[in-house]
C-alpha cells in the first residue's frame, strides 16, 4: 500500500530530517511511527501527504509515485487520506458539524449522505449533541476527537494521526486511542505518529532516531 524506498529529505545544505528510510505498510495495518522530537516522524507525514518532496528516493501509494503526481491530481490523492494534525487545524468559524461535513461537500456528496455520515462519526468520536458548537467552545480532548471525525468522515483508505495524545491527559488519551483502534477495526489503515510509548497490540512499529529508521517490527532490525 505505502512504500518508502531509500527516502531522504534534506533541509538547507546539510540537515537531513530523513536519511535512507525504507519501509512498507500494507492495508489494514495499525502502524506506530515512534521517535523523539526531531527524529523525522512529521517529515514522513509531510511526505505522505505530498506537502514536501523527498530529496532522494521514492514514496509510493499503491504503486504510484506520490511526488510525480501533477498538481491538478493532488486533491484526488489527498482525498484518499485522512489527516489529523498535531494542532488539530480546525476551522474556527465553522461549527462541529460544519468542520466535518465540508469534507464530504468537497467530494460532492448528497446532503442526506452527509447528514448520515456526520451522525455516524460523531457517535464514533463521542461528540453527539455538540454539533452546533464552535471549536473554541470545546475542550482539548473534544477538539482532538473532532479532528479525528473530520479525518474519517469520507472513509479514507488511510488515516494519519500526528501526536494525537501530546496535549491530552491520561483519560482523554485513552479515549482517543480507543477511537483510533475502533476505526482500525472497521478496516481503515491507521498510521499514528507519536513520541510516547503506546501499547497497541499487533501494531506495526517503526522507530526513528535522528532521521534514520532504527527498528521496523515487521522486518529485521536496522
Amino acid at each position: 500500500m505505502i512504500q518508502f524506498e531509500e527516502v531522504s529529505k534534506r533541509y538547507g545544505k546539510s540537515f537531513y530530517a530523513l536519511k535512507d528510510v525504507s519501509f512498507h505498510i500494507s492495508e489494514k495495518e495499525f502502524v506506530l511511527v515512534t521517535g523523539s522530537s526531531g527524529s523525522g516522524k512529521t517529515t514522513i507525514l509531510k511526505l505522505l501527504i505530498a506537502e514536501e518532496k523527498p530529496t532522494k528516493g521514492k514514496v509510493s501509494f499503491y504503486g504510484l509515485n506520490v511526488h510525480n503526481l501533477r498538481h491538478s491530481d493532488l486533491p484526488r490523492y489527498r482525498q484518499k487520506l485522512g489527516v489529523v494534525f498535531q494542532d488539530y487545524r480546525l476551522i474556527p468559524d465553522k461549527t462541529v458539524k460544519e468542520n466535518i461535513s465540508f469534507v464530504m461537500e468537497m467530494l460532492g456528496a448528497k446532503d442526506s449522505d452527509i447528514r448520515e455520515s456526520v451522525r455516524n462519526v460523531l457517535n464514533i468520536v463521542r461528540l453527539r449533541g455538540k454539533e452546533k458548537r464552535y471549536p473554541h467552545q470545546l475542550s482539548g480532548g473534544e477538539q482532538q476527537r473532532l479532528a479525528i471525525a473530520r479525518a474519517i468522515v469520507n472513509e479514507p483508505d488511510i488515516i494519519l494521526v500526528d501526536e494525537p495524545t501530546a496535549s491530552l491527559d491520561k483519560e482523554n488519551s485513552k479515549l482517543v486511542l480507543d477511537i483510533l483502534k475502533k476505526i482500525h477495526e472497521l478496516g481503515t489503515t491507521v498510521i499514528l505518529f507519536t513520541h510516547k510509548q503506546l501499547k497497541v497490540s499487533h501494531a506495526h512499529t517503526l522507530t526513528l532516531q535522528d532521521g534514520k529508521l532504527m527498528h521496523d517490527s515487521y522486518t529485521k532490525e536496522h
Binding site: I49, E51, L74, P75, R76, Y77, R78, Q79, K80, L81, G82, V83, R89, I91, P92, D93, F102, V103, E105, M106, R150
Partner: peptide, 16 residues
C-alpha cells in the same frame, strides 16, 4: 489561511 491550508490538505478542489 488555516481554512485554505486545511482544505488543500484534505483534497479540496480549487473551486471549493
Amino acid at each position: 489561511k488555516t481554512e485554505i491550508w486545511v482544505k488543500r490538505l484534505i483534497g479540496a478542489e480549487n473551486r471549493y
